[in-house]
Deep mutational scan, measured.
Amino acid sequence: HDVTIHAGDKTIHVHGASEEFLRIIEQAKRDGIHEEELLRLIEELVK
Rank of each mutant, 00 (worst) to 15 (best):
H1I: 15
H1F: 15
H1Y: 15
H1E: 09
H1R: 12
H1P: 10
D2Y: 15
D2C: 15
D2A: 13
D2G: 13
D2S: 15
D2F: 15
D2M: 15
D2Q: 11
D2V: 15
D2T: 15
V3E: 03
V3T: 07
V3I: 15
V3K: 01
V3C: 10
V3A: 05
T4W: 07
T4N: 07
T4G: 03
T4K: 03
T4V: 15
T4L: 10
T4A: 06
T4Y: 09
I5Y: 05
I5M: 05
I5N: 02
I5W: 02
I5P: 02
I5T: 02
I5E: 03
I5D: 02
I5R: 00
I5C: 04
I5G: 04
I5Q: 02
I5F: 08
I5S: 02
I5K: 01
I5L: 09
H6E: 12
H6D: 08
H6R: 03
H6V: 15
H6M: 13
H6G: 06
H6K: 07
H6N: 12
H6Y: 07
H6W: 06
A7P: 03
A7K: 03
A7H: 10
A7T: 11
A7G: 06
A7S: 08
A7M: 14
A7V: 15
A7E: 03
A7Q: 06
A7F: 15
A7Y: 15
A7L: 15
A7N: 07
G8T: 05
G8S: 05
G8D: 04
G8P: 03
G8H: 07
G8K: 01
G8W: 05
D9S: 04
D9I: 02
D9K: 02
D9Q: 02
D9F: 03
D9C: 06
D9E: 08
D9A: 01
D9G: 11
D9W: 02
D9R: 01
D9M: 02
K10M: 13
K10F: 12
K10L: 13
K10I: 15
T11E: 11
T11G: 04
T11D: 08
T11Y: 10
T11C: 02
T11N: 07
T11P: 05
T11R: 01
T11K: 04
I12A: 04
I12S: 03
I12W: 12
I12M: 07
I12C: 03
I12Q: 02
I12H: 04
I12E: 02
H13R: 05
H13P: 02
H13G: 02
H13D: 06
H13W: 06
H13M: 12
H13V: 15
H13Q: 12
H13K: 06
H13F: 11
V14H: 03
V14L: 13
V14C: 03
V14T: 02
V14S: 02
V14A: 03
V14I: 15
H15L: 14
H15K: 06
H15F: 11
H15S: 12
H15W: 11
H15G: 05
H15D: 06
H15Q: 13
H15V: 14
G16F: 13
G16H: 11
G16N: 14
G16S: 09
G16K: 06
G16D: 11
G16P: 04
G16E: 07
A17W: 12
A17H: 04
A17V: 15
A17D: 03
A17Y: 08
A17N: 03
A17R: 01
A17C: 09
A17K: 01
A17F: 14
S18N: 10
S18E: 05
S18L: 07
S18R: 04
S18D: 11
S18I: 06
S18Q: 05
S18V: 04
S18H: 06
E19V: 11
E19G: 07
E19N: 09
E19K: 08
E19I: 11
E19P: 11
E19W: 08
E19A: 10
E19C: 05
E19M: 09
E20C: 02
E20G: 03
E20W: 11
E20T: 07
E20F: 06
E20Q: 07
E20A: 08
F21A: 08
F21R: 00
F21P: 00
F21H: 06
F21S: 04
F21Q: 08
F21K: 01
F21G: 01
L22G: 02
L22H: 05
L22K: 06
L22A: 06
L22C: 14
L22E: 06
L22S: 03
L22W: 12
L22D: 03
L22P: 00
L22V: 12
L22F: 10
L22M: 12
L22I: 14
R23T: 08
R23H: 11
R23I: 10
R23D: 09
R23C: 04
R23E: 12
R23P: 01
R23Q: 13
I24T: 08
I24C: 04
I24Q: 10
I24G: 02
I24V: 11
I24N: 03
I24D: 01
I25D: 00
I25W: 07
I25S: 00
I25H: 00
I25M: 05
I25E: 00
I25G: 00
I25L: 11
I25N: 00
I25F: 05
I25K: 00
E26Q: 09
E26V: 02
E26K: 03
E26S: 05
E26A: 09
E26I: 05
E26C: 07
Q27K: 12
Q27W: 05
Q27G: 04
Q27S: 08
Q27N: 09
Q27V: 06
Q27P: 00
Q27D: 10
Q27A: 12
Q27L: 09
A28N: 01
A28W: 14
A28H: 03
A28Y: 10
A28E: 00
A28S: 05
A28I: 04
A28L: 12
A28D: 00
K29M: 15
K29T: 12
K29P: 00
K29I: 15
K29C: 13
K29D: 03
K29A: 10
K29N: 08
K29L: 15
R30D: 05
R30E: 12
R30V: 09
R30K: 09
R30G: 04
R30I: 11
R30H: 12
R30P: 01
R30Q: 13
R30F: 10
D31K: 01
D31Q: 11
D31Y: 04
D31H: 06
D31F: 06
D31A: 11
D31S: 07
D31R: 01
G32S: 04
G32N: 08
G32H: 05
G32Y: 03
G32C: 02
G32W: 01
G32A: 04
G32E: 03
G32K: 04
G32V: 02
G32T: 03
G32D: 04
G32P: 01
I33S: 02
I33F: 10
I33H: 03
I33E: 02
I33C: 02
I33L: 13
I33D: 01
H34A: 15
H34L: 14
H34G: 15
H34D: 15
H34M: 14
E35F: 14
E35Y: 14
E35K: 08
E35S: 14
E35T: 13
E35G: 15
E35Q: 11
E35L: 14
E35C: 08
E36N: 10
E36F: 10
E36R: 07
E36M: 11
E36W: 11
E36V: 12
E36L: 13
E36T: 12
E36C: 11
E36H: 10
E37W: 07
E37L: 08
E37R: 04
E37H: 07
E37P: 02
E37V: 08
L38Q: 00
L38P: 00
L38H: 00
L38Y: 02
L38V: 02
L38N: 00
L38M: 08
L38W: 05
L38R: 00
L38T: 01
L39S: 04
L39I: 14
L39D: 02
L39T: 05
L39H: 04
L39Y: 12
L39F: 13
R40P: 00
R40T: 09
R40K: 14
R40E: 09
R40W: 09
R40S: 09
R40C: 07
R40Q: 11
R40M: 12
R40I: 10
L41C: 01
L41R: 01
L41Q: 01
L41W: 05
L41N: 00
L41M: 08
L41Y: 05
L41K: 01
L41F: 07
L41G: 00
L41A: 01
L41S: 00
L41P: 00
I42S: 00
I42R: 00
I42E: 00
I42P: 00
I42K: 00
I42C: 03
I42A: 02
I42T: 01
I42M: 03
I42L: 09
I42H: 00
E43C: 06
E43M: 13
E43S: 06
E43I: 12
E43H: 08
E43P: 00
E43L: 14
E43R: 07
E43V: 09
E43W: 13
E44A: 10
E44T: 07
E44D: 11
E44H: 10
E44W: 13
E44V: 03
E44M: 09
E44K: 07
E44P: 01
L45P: 00
L45C: 03
L45F: 15
L45E: 01
L45R: 01
L45A: 05
L45M: 13
L45G: 01
L45D: 01
L45W: 15
L45V: 04
L45I: 07
L45Y: 15
L45S: 02
L45Q: 04
L45N: 02
V46R: 06
V46W: 10
V46P: 01
V46S: 08
V46Y: 10
V46Q: 10
V46H: 07
V46K: 05
K47C: 15
K47Y: 13
K47W: 12
K47Q: 14
K47I: 14
K47G: 14
K47H: 13
K47E: 11
K47D: 10
K47S: 14
K47P: 05
K47A: 14
K47M: 14
K47R: 12
